[in-house]
């Protein structure tokens, strides 16, 4: 008898992997693919000094309000953000580190792919190129953007199995795949958790090798 791989875990146990000062990636673009259940439990933890990697800040509002967040690495922090949230971010001294959206996703992908970083022309001549090392390849100049490793990723899928294989829908894929790849520990929530073999190998959006914990949501 071999060891049975079973990544299923309770919501609270999975979230207990997160500690003070950690770097935590949260998937989703708008509401699509946002790990609502995982984040609702994380919000209740009394943690501090977290670095959040998330495309947007508006959905992190409760954590910002309760002083859990030190820094947000993002591309579109204030999309849909209220003036109250803007004020809270300022008052709490939360650092906003802006990256172009494609650079954000690719630096996550690089981190999960054993690469040291990304060479990109996006940002050259703008403030997004400031302070970056310039590398010349085939006569073209590129910015060197270092890989973005995270300690924990919280992601959303439609269907999961106990190996962590995931199926996602529509535009809910977004950052979820690259964040899982970049994380030391990735936690996936899914409303449906099925038996091994029920997810077609032809239709698996993220192979379970990138997923450490699977949480079934109500």
């Amino acid at each position: 008898m071999g060891v049975v791989t079973d990544k299923r875990e309770s919501l609270h146990k999975a979230i207990s992997a997160i500690d003070h000062g950690m770097t935590v990636a949260i998937g989703g673009f708008g509401g699509a693919g946002f790990p609502t259940s995982l984040v609702s439990v994380l919000e209740k933890r009394r943690l501090h000094g977290l670095t959040m990697v998330s495309n947007n800040a508006a959905r992190l509002e409760p954590m910002i309000e309760s002083g859990m967040v030190a820094r947000i690495i993002c591309s579109f922090p204030f999309g849909g953000a209220s003036d109250t949230l803007r004020k809270s971010i300022q008052n709490a001294g939360v650092e906003i580190r802006l990256l172009p959206q494609g650079t954000l996703s690719e630096c996550l992908r690089a981190a999960g792919s054993g690469l040291g970083g990304v060479l990109t022309r996006v940002g050259i001549g703008t403030e997004f190129g400031e302070g970056r090392e310039i590398v010349e390849v085939h006569g073209k100049k590129y910015l060197l953007e270092p890989a973005l490793n995270v300690e924990v990723a919280l992601i959303h899928a439609s269907v999961a199995d106990r190996w962590g294989n995931l199926v996602m829908r529509g535009t809910a894929r977004n950052f979820n795949c690259v964040m899982a790849m970049a994380a030391a520990i990735s936690v996936a929530e899914a409303a449906e958790v099925v038996e091994i073999g029920e997810i077609s190998p032809e239709r698996c959006d993220l192979p379970g090798i990138f997923v450490d914990k699977v949480v079934k949501t109500a």
């Binding site: 673009f29 509401g31 996550l108 535009t171 977004n174 795949c177 690259v178």
Partner: peptide
């Protein structure tokens, strides 16, 4: 709610269309 545009508005997809993740999109 899982098929939205960059402005977070509900949209749809035509025949021949495809969905993919952010790294492929960029």
């Amino acid at each position: 709610p899982e098929v939205i545009d960059a402005g977070k508005n509900a949209v749809s997809i035509r025949f021949g269309g495809s969905f993919f993740d952010s790294s492929v999109s960029f």
